[in-house]
Computed example of a mutant assay.
Amino acid sequence: SAHQAIEKVLDYLNEGYEWVIDMDIEKYFDTVHHDKLISTLRERVKDRETLHLIRVFLKAGIMENGFVRP
């Protein structure tokens, strides 16, 4: 929620952080080669089930105006 986000920002400020970066990554994963991403993740993530779940999420569609699209 917005309230949780503000609380987290205050926590970070109290820890000494000074920068905030805001990005819109809505279409980012549309352009990423999924096999290369999974291969890179494999270097750090050793759990096969987690990697499988990430791949499933990457392949999942989205719902817009009540309709699912790829």
Results as ranks from 00 to 15, higher is better:
1 S>F: 00
1 S>L: 01
2 A>C: 07
2 A>M: 13
2 A>R: 13
3 H>F: 05
4 Q>T: 04
5 A>Y: 02
5 A>E: 05
5 A>V: 05
6 I>S: 07
6 I>V: 14
6 I>D: 01
7 E>A: 14
8 K>D: 05
8 K>P: 00
9 V>N: 01
9 V>Y: 08
10 L>F: 07
11 D>A: 05
11 D>N: 09
11 D>F: 07
12 Y>E: 07
12 Y>D: 05
12 Y>A: 12
13 L>E: 11
13 L>S: 10
13 L>Q: 13
13 L>T: 07
14 N>V: 04
14 N>D: 13
14 N>W: 06
15 E>W: 09
15 E>G: 01
16 G>I: 05
16 G>C: 03
18 E>V: 10
18 E>R: 12
19 W>D: 11
21 I>K: 09
22 D>S: 08
22 D>I: 14
22 D>Q: 06
22 D>W: 03
23 M>K: 11
23 M>P: 00
23 M>I: 10
25 I>Q: 02
25 I>H: 04
25 I>E: 08
26 E>K: 09
26 E>C: 04
26 E>S: 14
26 E>L: 08
26 E>F: 11
26 E>N: 11
26 E>V: 08
27 K>P: 00
27 K>W: 01
28 Y>D: 04
28 Y>N: 04
28 Y>A: 15
28 Y>S: 11
30 D>W: 11
30 D>M: 10
30 D>V: 02
31 T>S: 12
31 T>A: 08
32 V>K: 09
32 V>N: 02
32 V>I: 15
33 H>D: 14
33 H>T: 02
33 H>A: 04
34 H>F: 06
34 H>G: 04
35 D>A: 11
35 D>F: 01
36 K>L: 09
36 K>D: 09
38 I>T: 01
39 S>N: 15
39 S>K: 15
39 S>P: 01
40 T>Y: 15
40 T>W: 09
41 L>W: 11
41 L>G: 08
41 L>M: 15
41 L>T: 09
42 R>L: 05
42 R>F: 02
43 E>G: 03
44 R>I: 00
44 R>Q: 02
45 V>F: 12
45 V>P: 03
47 D>W: 03
47 D>H: 10
47 D>C: 05
48 R>H: 09
49 E>P: 00
49 E>D: 13
49 E>A: 09
49 E>W: 09
49 E>V: 07
51 L>F: 07
51 L>K: 06
52 H>N: 13
53 L>R: 13
54 I>W: 06
54 I>E: 03
55 R>D: 11
55 R>T: 10
55 R>N: 10
56 V>I: 10
56 V>K: 14
56 V>E: 15
57 F>N: 11
57 F>E: 10
58 L>P: 02
59 K>T: 05
59 K>I: 00
61 G>N: 06
61 G>K: 07
62 I>K: 13
63 M>W: 07
63 M>I: 15
64 E>Y: 05
64 E>Q: 08
64 E>T: 07
65 N>Q: 14
66 G>V: 06
66 G>N: 07
68 V>P: 04
68 V>G: 01
69 R>W: 08
69 R>M: 14
69 R>D: 02
